[in-house]
Design a protein around this nucleic acid. Structure first.
Lengths: 153, 153
DNA sequence: AAAAATCAGTTGCATATGCCTTGAATATAT
DNA sequence: ATATATTCAAGGCATATGCAACTGATTTTT
């Protein structure tokens, strides 16, 4: 039974995130990227030069936090932040050649980690995990929680 | 379908943790505690003056990270770190009177948040969530992942 | 008992994140 | 066309976390 932080959903997810974060960080280490950085590069490629705002929304993260997280990647020449030609306020994140290359390399490591995850956790459970996490990250859930109301599916 | 950070388990759990963290932080705000701090106080009470090492193990977190997280609580007089009488190396975390009081107050806020969570997320789903998170945090899973093997259990 | 291996915490260094404020640019309302 | 509101990003400030190096204390070897 352990003195688990109570069945606190928040504590539980943070703990699991810390744990998994380390495993993925280790797996990606050869690429020089941390798990979070891999995600950033991936999203930049996927969204094709998104503005920081768009990226932050996509990742459900604070804009300033995102900006800071990109700094190390910029410094290391993997990401370039360029002004948006149509909106003087916006800036877009793009992958440099080195960034694309690093991402490509990291993708392989990531895939391997993902595979090991499925194997160790079980396909069924993994499916279940992603499913609940997706619900958690949804706007619907947040609103339902804030309203103290039930999730209307 | 959105450009979800790929079905990356790591990215997904971090995202969900960020989201939920904010909701719990908001809920606990009246007590002056962040979600993580609430957890620390709770664990200290639950484990009854644990050494930092014991706490760190329980929370599956880095010892130095724990030590630093306790600093603000110490500074604010909610937690006191005392030397272990039997082991010159160890230190134990204890709640001060103010700490207990704050925790008690926070507990109510937490319970409310937890309730809203169940209601918004659904009891069944909540159950599912805690179940997968617990598996994730287990030593067995970590080892299985690292060995690239399947979880024998 | 002396030397060697371990263990608990601390500190330096670095990333991850969030909130609030500020400045510049754009969009809206009048 | 102006004044006003909104939006994007940056900066200051603070917590959350991890790793590696280091010190002091305890345990294990020899």
């Amino acid at each position: 039974m352990a003195t688990n932080p109570g069945p606190c959903n928040n504590a539980a997810i943070r703990q699991a995130a810390r744990m998994l974060g380390q495993l993925y960080d280790d797996a990606l280490a050869p690429s020089g990227l941390r798990g979070t950085q891999y995600t950033l590069l991936y999203v930049i490629q996927e969204m094709n030069a998104p503005t920081l705002r768009e990226m932050a929304d996509q990742l459900v993260m604070d804009l300033s936090a995102l900006g800071r997280s990109l700094k190390p990647l910029e410094r290391d020449g993997l990401v370039a932040i360029v002004a948006d030609p149509n909106d003087g306020r916006a800036k877009r994140a793009t992958l440099t050649k080195a960034g694309s290359k690093t991402l490509k390399r990291a993708l392989e490591l990531w895939r391997d980690a993902q595979d090991r995850f499925e194997k160790a956790f079980g396909t069924k459970r993994a499916e279940e995990l992603r499913s609940v996490l997706e619900s958690l990250s949804s706007r619907e859930f947040r609103e339902a929680f804030q309203n103290g109301a039930a999730l209307r599916k």
